[in-house]
């Protein structure tokens, strides 16, 4: 079965090959809960209450502590290019919450007994098992210039693929160190075991601009596919490229 819901401002597709609608609904329920608890745009969320000083660090749920520690780790690792606290704006851990919450939605499916599925949340993907015996999930990476073309296809069984890119006019990602829009890179794709890691690594690498190429390559358990402004591709030897 396949369903698409719009949650956290994202189109989220669940392609479940061996589970029922009730199981998919549990995964969507978790995502709605994560949105309610961690959205900086909802005044009564835990994130908003922390930001207003209504909660201390000691009063936070373990989930938010985990999200914030991920934010802190990537902020330190990128020298502040990636940040959940842009000056002049409130706490915004969305860049971590998205991948983290979708990974956990995939965990909900697994715990419910599903062994073959693909979850795609706004272009960030978690897969399990195989769509057909002997075949991996074929995850196409969008071409940065051509919306209906791919730049590479990955063959993934149990894994996560995240892409950070600017395709749509007027979008921008700011470098947390300068407050200026990032230049130098068109698209960063990261393959890892876990979407929280893949997604945050992709976003953080993008925020670093050109320096993000080497930075991402150094990240443990991550394979990368990066397109720079000159349309050069940088890819890790371990990237699971699917030969079509």
């Amino acid at each position: 079965m396949r369903r698409v819901e719009h949650i956290m401002g994202l189109p989220i597709s669940v392609d479940l090959r061996d589970g029922d609608a009730a199981l998919a609904e549990r995964a969507f329920d978790w995502l709605r809960e994560a949105d309610a608890r961690f959205s900086p745009f909802k005044p009564d969320s835990e994130v908003s209450r922390l930001d207003r000083g209504e909660l201390t660090r000691d009063e936070l749920t373990p989930d938010l502590v985990e999200v914030l520690s991920l934010c802190d780790w990537y902020e330190q690792s990128t020298g502040g290019a990636f940040t959940a606290r842009v000056p002049g704006r409130g706490l915004d851990p969305c860049a971590v919450v998205k991948g983290w919450a979708v990974q956990r939605a995939a965990d909900v499916l697994r715990e419910g007994g599903a062994t073959s599925f693909c979850v795609n949340a706004g272009g960030d993907v978690v897969t399990a098992g195989e769509p057909e015996p002997g075949k991996p999930w074929r995850v196409g990476v969008r071409h940065p210039d051509l919306a209906d073309q791919l730049s590479v296809v990955l063959g993934v069984r149990d894994g996560a693929v995240a892409t950070s890119a600017l395709y749509e006019r007027g979008q921008h990602i700011l470098d947390g160190r300068t407050g200026q829009p990032v230049t130098g890179i068109l698209s960063v794709t990261v393959f890892s075991d876990d979407l929280a890691i893949a997604d945050t690594t992709a976003t953080a690498a993008f925020a670093l601009g050109r320096d993000g190429i080497e930075w991402a390559a150094e990240q443990e358990d991550c394979e990368i596919f990066i397109v720079d402004e000159d349309r050069r591709v940088y890819s890790s030897p371990g990237l699971p490229v699917h030969i079509c």
Binding site: G140, L150, Y167
Partner: peptide
């Protein structure tokens, strides 16, 4: 890292990564 030129392709796929 390996370096190469960007290529466009279309292929049968199950899902798309890309924002």
């Amino acid at each position: 890292l390996r370096e190469s030129a960007l290529k466009a392709q279309s292929a049968d796929i199950d899902t798309v990564s890309g924002a």
